[in-house]
Amino acid sequence: MSTGSVEQFQQSLSRLDTAWTVVSPDDLATTVADLVDPPAVGAELPFDDLSLAETPVTLGPSPAQLRDAVTGVTGSRMGIASLGTVAVEFRKEGDEFVALYPERHVVVIKASDLRSDLGDAFGWIRREFEADRQSFILATGPSSTGDMGALVQGVHGPEQVHIVIVRDNE
């Protein structure tokens, strides 16, 4: 994906008060370690060349570990640059639970997995559905609701989100 999409994604995230960091693949483990507040749980990343194995994150957490976790770390194979949105996939690794239960969610996404807008994102989603991968949450910033009056964060998901954008081809 072009540098323009990364910059647009960063601008969208900033408008949402969502923190972000851009890293090289070699710096991912150190960056994740710096971003997590323990105890931290995670779902193994959906990328062949990136892993959470060298981070202080418990992979495949038990229900008790998930309940006690402060930080959850997942990967995303699609982001929408114009909206600051990421797709959280339902996989056997537990991405949805890891993304929604802890108060802090750290998302790892490759720069090449950013789509410029909804039209591009819907094309990706269509191909995923055709491949029988049909359960995604499209998450934009921290969870918030205004249905009780004032805007409240963290009611239906994490209070804080940090997106780690991994540069490609380094």
Rank of each mutant, 00 (worst) to 15 (best):
T3A: 15
T3P: 07
S5Y: 07
Q11M: 09
S12V: 09
L13A: 02
S14G: 06
T18C: 04
A19L: 06
W20L: 05
V22G: 03
D26F: 11
D27N: 13
L28D: 01
A29H: 02
T30A: 10
T30V: 11
D34L: 08
L35E: 01
V36R: 00
D37Y: 12
D37F: 12
V41W: 01
G42M: 06
E44Q: 10
P46R: 07
F47D: 07
F47M: 08
D48L: 12
D49W: 13
A53T: 13
A53E: 11
E54Q: 14
T55S: 08
T55Y: 04
L59M: 12
P63W: 06
P63V: 08
L66D: 05
R67T: 15
R67S: 14
V70G: 01
G72T: 11
G72D: 03
V73W: 03
V73H: 00
T74Q: 05
R77M: 12
M78W: 06
M78C: 10
G79A: 07
G79F: 04
G79I: 07
G79W: 02
I80L: 05
S82P: 00
L83A: 06
T85F: 06
T85H: 01
V86Y: 01
V86D: 00
K92I: 15
E93R: 14
G94E: 07
G94C: 08
F97K: 13
V98L: 06
P102C: 03
P102V: 05
P102L: 01
R104N: 08
V107C: 09
V108M: 03
K110R: 15
A111H: 07
A111D: 08
D113N: 14
D113Q: 13
R115C: 14
S116K: 15
S116D: 15
D117Q: 07
G119N: 13
I125D: 02
F129S: 05
E130H: 13
A131Q: 11
A131H: 10
G141P: 03
G141T: 10
P142R: 04
S144W: 11
G149W: 12
L151Y: 02
L151T: 09
L151W: 02
Q153G: 04
Q153R: 10
Q153K: 10
H156V: 06
H156F: 11
V161G: 00
H162G: 00
I163L: 07
V164A: 03
I165L: 04
V166T: 05
R167L: 14
D168H: 09
N169P: 11
